[in-house]
Design a protein around this nucleic acid. Structure first.
Length: 425
RNA sequence: GCGGGAGUAGCUCAGCUGGUUAGAGCGCCAGGUUGUGGCCCUGGAGGCCGUGGGUUCGAGUCCCAUUUCUCGCCCCA
C-alpha cells in the first residue's frame, strides 16, 4: 500500500482501463442523443475568471461562498476551476457572438466540474457532467425538448426507476412577492427553524422550502405555494411546458418545493432523481435562466439547460446491474519463438494493423506457453504462431482459439488471409 | 465546516483476551511436453500490518495524534 508515494488528491479518482469503456459508452449515448436533437459540442477552458462564477451563480450560494477552487496566477489574476457548466458556455456564447450565426444556439458539453466538498457516495471534488444549453428561445417547447433529451439519454443507458420533478421558480416580476409572503408566513416560527434556515430567511428565503430537517419541514408545511404566486406569464409558461411533456409521454411530478442552488434560475426548474443513489439522489438537474445572458453583459436572451453527473449515472447503472457492451479486445495475437521469427512477427503486426485488423504480441519476453496464455486472456480470436519451422517453409501458422483448428498461410499474403479469417468468423 | 465506521500482500479479507520467522483465497510469474491457451498439480515473487509518537520485557493487536478511504449532515451532479 505504502509503495505508492503519491495518491490522487482527496475526492478525485483515476478512471482505470477496466472502467474507461463504460465511460466511453455512456458518453457515446449522450453524443448520439445530442446528434438526434441537433445540439453541437462546445469545449470551454477548465478555469475562468473567478468573477464569472461569483456573479452568475450568486455570491451567497454554497458553491461560491465555500466550494470553489480559486487561485491566483502569477500575474495576480483570480481564477477558478469550473464549479458548474453553464456560466462558461454563456461566456463563450457572448465572447464569440454565437447569436449572430443563429438566433437559437443549442450546445452540449462533456466536462469535469470542481467543487471543494467533503467526499461521500456520489459526491467528489472533481466530477464529470454531460450537459446541454439551449440559448435564445423563450418557447416552452424548448424547455420540454431539453428535458426530453435528458430523459432519452438516461433511458438509453438502460436506467429505470427515475423520477422527474418539475417546478417553476418564477421570475423577477413575481418572485419578490412570493418571497415576502413566504417570509411573512414563516416569521412566527422563525426561532424554531434550524440554524441554516434562519440564515436562509434573510439571504435566500426560497431555499427554506427544500430544507431536509424534519422539524423545518413540519413548520413550513402550510406555507403558501410558489405556484399560486406566479405571474400570468410564468404560470402560462409552466402550463405549456407540462403540456409538451404530456405530449412527449414524459411522466413528471409537480413539486412546488423544488428549488435549485443557483441564483440564475427563472421559471422552469427540474431534477431527475433515482432511488438507487442513496443520499445524493439527483442524477440530472437544470432549468431556465432567462436573466443570465443579460446579467453577463449580453442582450436580454432567454435560455434553458441541464447538467447530469456521469459518476452518479454509472453508479445507478452499477446498482441496477445494467450490462455494458463488451470491451474491445485485439483480434489477433502473434506468438513468436526466437529472434528471426520475432522480426517476422513485428512485420506481420504492422501489416495487419495497416489492414485495420487489431493485433497484439508479447513484449515481456515470455515462453511460448506463457504467450499462449496471454493470447487466451486477450480474448483474441486467432493466435498466429511463428517459429523457425514456419519461417523455413516461408509461412505462418494460425490457430483458432475457440476451435483449436490450425492452418498455415504463405508469408507474403498472410496478413490478408488472416484478415479474411477474422471477417468471416 | 460537523459527525459515524475503517486502513494487514495487486484485489477480497483472516489474525482469539498483546508473545517468537504475519496468513488464506483470487490474481501475477515459473515449472509439470523438445514449440501451444482455458481445467488440474507444484513452486515462487510480493507486506517495516496507513504514518508519527506513547504504554510494555515484548504491539498488527492497547492509548494519543495525524492522514487517507468510506458513510451521513450541509449542498449538489
Amino acid at each position: 500500500m505504502q509503495l505508492a508515494r503519491y495518491t490522487a488528491p482527496r475526492g478525485t479518482a483515476d478512471i482505470l482501463p477496466k472502467e474507461s469503456p463504460k465511460w466511453q459508452w455512456v458518453e457515446a449515448q449522450f453524443r448520439e442523443k445530442c446528434r438526434l436533437y441537433n445540439y453541437q459540442e462546445i469545449r470551454t477552458p477548465t478555469f475562468e475568471e473567478t468573477d464569472l462564477f461569483a456573479r452568475s451563480i450568486g455570491e451567497h450560494t454554497d458553491i461560491v461562498s465555500k466550494e470553489m477552487y480559486t487561485f491566483t496566477d502569477r500575474s495576480g489574476r483570480s481564477l477558478t476551476l469550473r464549479p458548474e457548466g453553464t456560466a462558461p458556455v454563456v461566456r463563450a456564447y457572448l465572447q464569440h457572438n454565437l447569436a449572430s450565426e443563429q438566433p437559437v444556439r443549442k450546445l452540449y458539453y462533456i466536462t469535469s466540474i470542481f467543487r471543494y466538498e467533503r467526499p461521500q457516495a456520489g459526491r467528489y471534488r472533481e466530477h464529470h457532467q454531460v450537459g446541454i444549453e439551449a440559448i435564445g428561445s423563450a418557447d416552452p417547447a424548448i424547455d420540454a425538448e431539453v428535458i426530453s433529451l435528458g430523459m432519452d439519454y438516461l433511458t438509453s443507458l438502460g436506467i429505470g426507476g427515475l423520477e422527474l420533478k418539475i417546478n417553476s421558480v418564477g421570475c423577477p416580476n413575481c418572485r419578490p412577492r412570493y418571497r415576502e409572503s413566504l417570509k411573512e408566513s414563516v416569521k412566527p416560527y422563525l426561532a424554531e427553524l434550524c440554524e441554516s434556515c434562519r440564515i436562509r430567511y434573510d439571504a435566500n428565503p426560497l431555499r427554506m422550502l427544500d430544507c431536509k430537517v424534519p422539524g423545518c419541514r413540519e413548520l413550513t408545511v402550510n406555507v403558501p405555494s410558489l405556484i399560486d404566486y406566479l405571474c400570468d406569464e410564468c404560470s402560462a409558461h409552466l402550463a405549456s411546458v407540462l403540456k409538451y411533456l404530456d405530449l412527449a409521454g414524459i411522466k413528471y411530478t409537480l413539486d412546488p418545493r423544488l428549488v435549485r442552488g443557483f441564483d440564475y434560475y427563472t421559471k422552469t426548474a427540474f431534477e431527475v432523481q433515482s432511488s438507487r443513489l442513496g443520499a445524493q439522489s439527483a442524477v440530472l438537474g437544470g432549468g431556465r435562466y432567462d436573466g443570465l445572458v443579460e446579467e453577463m453583459g449580453g442582450a436580454k436572451t432567454p435560455a434553458v439547460g441541464f447538467g447530469s453527473g456521469i459518476e452518479r449515472t454509472l453508479a445507478i447503472m452499477e446498482a441496477e446491474g445494467v450490462q455494458f457492451p463488451p470491451a474491445c479486445h485485439p483480434h489477433v495475437f502473434i506468438v513468436t519463438l526466437g529472434d528471426a521469427p520475432r522480426a517476422a512477427g513485428v512485420q506481420l503486426l504492422l501489416e495487419l494493423r495497416r489492414l485495420s485488423v487489431a493485433a497484439e504480441m508479447d513484449y515481456a519476453g515470455k515462453s511460448m506457453k506463457a504467450q499462449m496464455r496471454s493470447a487466451d486472456r486477450s480474448e483474441a480470436g486467432i493466435a498466429v504462431i511463428i517459429g523457425d519451422d514456419e519461417l523455413a517453409r516461408g509461412e505462418v501458422k494460425t490457430r483458432n482459439m475457440q476451435t483449436r483448428e490450425e492452418s498455415a498461410y504463405p508469408l507474403p499474403a498472410a496478413a490478408q488471409k488472416i484478415k479474411e479469417l477474422i471477417c468471416t468468423e
